[in-house]
Design a protein around this nucleic acid. Structure first.
Lengths: 212, 212
DNA sequence: TGTACATCAGTGAACGCGCGTTCACTGATGTAC
DNA sequence: TGTACATCAGTGAACGCGCGTTCACTGATGTAC
């Protein structure tokens, strides 16, 4: 899952790296903050370098261009999202509705916790969003949903119906996340309790007969 | 619904306006195209002016600043979205599942037809997204969903359950729209037929017992 | 252990660019008499 | 109908800005002998 290609930091930060001490990771962290503060398009290489305390040319020793830094942020964020979803599923009995809702809750929590990064991860990022490693991480995340659905329905992972229902649940959770962080929920008078909603939706979509 | 405050064009374009001939509308159209081509952040006042064939200072005779032009685009887009949703609902019997699905289909069609503008409308647009006229238009759009749900369940519009289920349906359709235009659907092997999905979801969410 | 050398992370100055916005202006249009 | 005037949409030059990226460089670190 984790590929450390062209990363000077294999696993953990080695004491203090060459000159600066792990500039790469610090740049990614700076960009993450910038994206969180100013949105996916409010970030600049110069500002990130400034925050990391280096010259504006330094980042180019670690990244080809501005896009590659963003990809670094996305990659790291998807790792955290995946970990959160897995941990949530593991906290409830396999095949329970609660496990299903918990996976959704982890997703919503991520969106609420770092909306800027969430937007970056799920938005369309100028051209190279086709990076195979990011696609693989996306599949891993969706895989957690598929697994929970399959367990609920007691069907194999590849089952057509499992995939369908997993996608429906994802759509719902994804839509709810965006509507919330984009503050569109003011148009409805309904008070929205995440867990309650997630349980209701899981129940509705995982009901035995897909089409009566 | 339509407020023509500070618009030199009351209803229909009057032959040819002062010098240029309805620059305001042409600027909005140019920005709409730019947003569609380069995304919500890829637009610039200069480029819009260039496309409309006027100097870069001309737009400031019609709009206070760049944000106000964007708001013009959003406002116009929401009018079209609302019209599409209403027409879709009207094409099927009141209270039918088909009417419900059709409203969702109109929403998805809008997203697919002009993804850039859709992103602009539903994203968070720097600070002044609290414009009351835009909020009102958002409420009108959601109102179409609420109305369809109320008709299906034979309950009053203000009913708590109606609002809840309407929001659920909106979340699903919204999520599906974004996942599609942001090309995230590649992580699933499920083939997605909009109408089929919308009917299935409508059926699942409008089933009589909200919680068995 | 000591020396010579290769590596390469970070520097700082510079480049060309397009942007948002302002300003004093000009000239066509509409209006009052 | 004709003249004088007010309005105001659009001009074009200018401003200061921060950006992404390049370049030749420097100096600390790691390595071979």
């Amino acid at each position: 899952m984790a590929d450390d290609i062209n990363s000077p930091v294999p696993g953990v930060t080695p004491k203090a790296a060459y000159h600066h001490g792990d500039l790469r990771a610090q740049l990614v962290a700076a960009v993450r903050d910038l994206v969180e503060t100013y949105g996916p398009d409010g970030f600049s290489v110069s500002e990130a370098a400034r925050r990391a305390g280096v010259s504006s040319a330094a980042p180019y020793k670690h990244f080809r261009d501005r896009h590659e830094i963003l990809r670094g942020v996305v990659s790291e964020a998807m790792d955290r999202l995946f970990a959160g979803m897995e941990a949530a599923a593991a906290a409830y009995p396999v095949g329970s509705l609660e496990a299903m809702a918990a996976v959704g809750q982890a997703y919503v929590d991520f969106a609420k916790g770092e909306p800027g990064v969430f937007r970056l991860v799920f938005g369309l990022t100028e051209g190279h969003e086709n990076a195979p490693d990011l696609l693989a991480k996306g599949e891993s995340c969706f895989g957690v949903v598929v697994q929970a659905v399959a367990a609920c329905l007691d069907l194999p992972l590849g089952d057509r119906d499992v995939q369908r229902r997993a996608y429906m649940l994802w759509s719902f959770v994804h839509g709810h996340s965006f509507l919330h962080i984009d503050m569109k929920t003011r148009v409805t008078t309904a008070e929205i309790d995440d867990w309650d909603y997630l349980m209701t939706i899981s129940r509705a979509i995982l009901a035995r007969p897909a089409r009566p």
